[in-house]
Amino acid sequence: MKPFGYVRPASTDEAVRLCAAGPGARFLGGGTNLVDLMKLGVEAPRVLVDVAGLPLDRVTRTADGGLSIGATARNSDLAAHPDVTRSYPVLSQALLAGASGQLRNSATTGGNLLQRTRCRYFQDVSKPCNKRLPGSGCPAREGTHRDLAILGHSPECVATHPSDMAVALAALDATVVLLGPEGERTVPLTGFHRLPGENPDQDTVIRPGELITEVVLPPPAPGAASRYRKARDRASFAFALVSVAATLRVEAGRVEHATLAFGGVAHRPWRARRAEAELRGAPATPAVFQHALIAELAEARPLRDNVFKVDLTRRLALDVLGELTARQSALSARTG
């Protein structure tokens, strides 16, 4: 690890100013990924601007009944927050499916969104990687890629975004609030992470010096149930092979509301818009779900060793939708 500077700004404005002051500055949240990458030589910041102590850790109800999540709220705290467990269980489940207890205690909301791919070539500085060193090539495409993308990848990059939390936030239509040298702006979470295209070095649309200050959730969809499920190689402390976040409301046997997002399959949380469009207003039956998922996954382009992910995504999503439908009918049976 190369020597680096370390500063603890007193305010968000100062943090942004410090980071914009020159190249090579990085915001430090929980450090659970950035510090690893520094040890691996992937990142060599000139200065770390530690934002973990800024007063951005609050989780509060918004005026419209949504939820504002401060960027430095710890993953553990957020997962256990009563408003989250009550109104957005999919988010709590996703958080608890990620990493380990110790890491969740340290990891922040903003840092979680900005974590980098765990593609083994990206993490190994002795090898080419277009994300780490643009133009150097992508050995993953022909190499070790069982864990990598099946959707939205490019000839330059087949990396996946590793976050669980972000998949739930994608399904919840969250918004990311950014503070930069030119002021504040908001970006929908589904547009926050990019597809790799020809510039896989850019994971997100964040601009130089911009700081995530909060993530805002709209009010929960009335009457909808939600669920996060993750398939992985071991029971804990493993990244998703595939994960599914869904919210669903079924009325009189028809889908009134559905959002669906996949993790572990693309360079960003994959919001399954096509499937959602097929589901909306359609009968809540396995055949309909199946058809919608097949339509969504028609554009999958799996690599040699991750063909299984197409099937795994379909199966897991089908099961989640079935589970949510069953819960909705049980609920309506009780209340009806």
């Binding site: 190689d233 029971a235 804990s236």
Partner: peptide, 15 residues
């Protein structure tokens, strides 16, 4: 290719 304990999966307590 799996040279660290994040990629080389030894069983954890949950396993």
């Amino acid at each position: 290719t799996a040279r660290d304990l994040a990629s080389y999966h030894v069983p954890v307590c949950a396993d």
